[in-house]
Structures are given as structure tokens and as C-alpha cells.
């Protein structure tokens, strides 16, 4: 038996919005640790890893580990029926082939439930080795989103370089080229407005902007994003989900033949 009650239901709505364009079908894994998901996009270039820790739920019952295969677009459609202030409860029976989403409005005078058929998915769960990153940059998530959007109107790929000077985003296209540099800036009113650069070694990697733009759908989940880079490794963009966990996106670089 599985029963997860999330008071801040809007978080789940945002999580689905952040993932549904990148991944079509995915297995949600439920264990004593929490509610999690790992899935790749269809071209196996990008990966999303979600964790909502059990402590973040008002009520968390998971008698045995359950894997639930779902079409994320369908889950997103169901969650659009929940109000932003609704409490969301996810229920499933062990060995069952359905999941139920229940929505309660704050006044507790409207209760909706939606039952959805689960899918049997063959998923390739990837082992991600721990890595030492050459550079870790924390910056406002809205700024990162703006940069990816602006540069994609000029080019298809971005070179992200981190030096002592800052983090530089460069692109080139038919109309010309563009460079945006964000310097470390910790003299801000609020810590979430800071750009903080931790660099062990200068790094420069090329990525497809299309995927980075897709990752920025998670912007509403967190005011900051942490970008980790190492030469010869996928980029990690992490959006922390307050008190609950994270959504991390991995993106393989483009490299010289």
C-alpha cells in the first residue's frame, strides 16, 4: 500500500511541468527514502533525476518499494485539474495496475479523485558515478533561463566556459555571435540573487541549447540553479526543491570528432 499526502500540491504540478517535455514515459520509484524518478530523453542525451524525500510529505506510507510507470503528459493533464493550493494525495495498492491522484481544496469542501492506469515500462536505469567537478556555479535560475532563451534566438549550441573571471555563455549563428558573461557577485540583497563561482580548474564545454531550454522549465521550483561542469563529463543543472529534494538535469556535451 502506498499513500503519499503532499500539502503543497503545486510542487508536484511544477515538477511535472518541468519534466514532461523532456521525457515521455517514466517509472516513478517509491521507497522509504522518498518518491523518485530517473529517466532519459528519447535520444539518450539528457537525463532527469527527481527526488522528493519522504520527510517532505505530511503523510508518507510506502509498505514496500513500488515502481509505477506513467506517461508524464497524462500525469500532467491530471495534475492540471488540481488547484495550486490543493493538497494532493497519491495512492496505489501493492501489485495493482492503477494509481489514484486525490485533490482536496484548502476549504476541504471539494475532493476530486482521478484513477490512472499504470504502464509496464522497460527503463534503463543509469548508474551515475560520483564526480569531482572542475567548476560549480550557483546563479539565479531566472537569469540562467533568460540567457538560454536569448542565446537560442542566435544559435543552436552554447559554449559554457568557467574561468576566474566568471561564467561565459557563447553562441554563434547565421546573424553573428554573442557572449554573455556573469561575474561572481555576492554583494546582493538576498543570497538567492548571488552568482557564486567555485572553480578548481577552468573548463569549457559545448551543449545543445534546446536541452538547456527544456531544463529551465524547472525555474519556478527554485530561485537558484547550480550548474556543475567538468571537461569530459555531462553538465548537471540542479534545482533544489525547498525542504523536499531536488530535480537534477544531466546533459551530455558535444565534442570534437
Amino acid at each position: 500500500m502506498l499513500e503519499l499526502r503532499l500539502v503543497q500540491g503545486s510542487l508536484l504540478k511544477k515538477v511535472l511541468e518541468a519534466m514532461k517535455d523532456l521525457v515521455t514515459d517514466a517509472n516513478f520509484d517509491c521507497s522509504a527514502t522518498g518518491f523518485s524518478l530517473q529517466a532519459m530523453d528519447s535520444s539518450h542525451v539528457a537525463l532527469v533525476a527527481l527526488l522528493l524525500r519522504s520527510e517532505g510529505f505530511e503523510h508518507y506510507r510506502c509498505d514496500r518499494n513500488i515502481t509505477m510507470g506513467m506517461n508524464l503528459n497524462n500525469v500532467s493533464k491530471l495534475l492540471k485539474c488540481a488547484g495550486n493550493d490543493d493538497i494532493i494525495t497519491i495512492k496505489a495498492d501493492d501489485g495493482g495496475d492503477t494509481v489514484t491522484f486525490m485533490f482536496e481544496n484548502p476549504k476541504q469542501d471539494k475532493i476530486s479523485d482521478f484513477e490512472m492506469k499504470l504502464m509496464d515500462l522497460d527503463s534503463e536505469h543509469l548508474g551515475i558515478p560520483d564526480a569531482e567537478y572542475h567548476a560549480i556555479v550557483r546563479m539565479p535560475s531566472l537569469e540562467f533561463s533568460r540567457i538560454c532563451k536569448d542565446l537560442s534566438s542566435i544559435g543552436d549550441t552554447v559554449v559554457i566556459s568557467v574561468t576566474k573571471e566568471g561564467i561565459k555563455f557563447s553562441t554563434r549563428g547565421d546573424i553573428g555571435n554573442a557572449n554573455i558573461v556573469c561575474r561572481q557577485n555576492t554583494t546582493v540583497d538576498k543570497p538567492e540573487e548571488a552568482t557564486v563561482i567555485q572553480m578548481n580548474e577552468a573548463v569549457s564545454l559545448t551543449f545543445a541549447l534546446r536541452y538547456l531550454n527544456s531544463f529551465t522549465k524547472a525555474t519556478s521550483l527554485s530561485e537558484t540553479v547550480t550548474i556543475s561542469l567538468s571537461s569530459e563529463l555531462p553538465l548537471v543543472a540542479e534545482y533544489k526543491i525547498a525542504d523536499m529534494g531536488y530535480i537534477k538535469f544531466y546533459l551530455a556535451p558535444k565534442i570534437e570528432d
Binding site: M40, S43, H44, V45, A46, L47, E124, H125, L126, G127, I128, P129, T157, T206, A208, E232, L233, P234, Y250, A252, P253, K254, I255, E256, D257
Partner: peptide
Amino acid sequence: GLHQVRLFRFFFVL
């Protein structure tokens, strides 16, 4: 030129 690498190059299938 540049080519897009897949994640399998860095991560292993469990």
C-alpha cells in the same frame, strides 16, 4: 566538427 555524445559514454546501465 562537433558531435553530440550520448549519456552511455559516461554513465553505465544498472
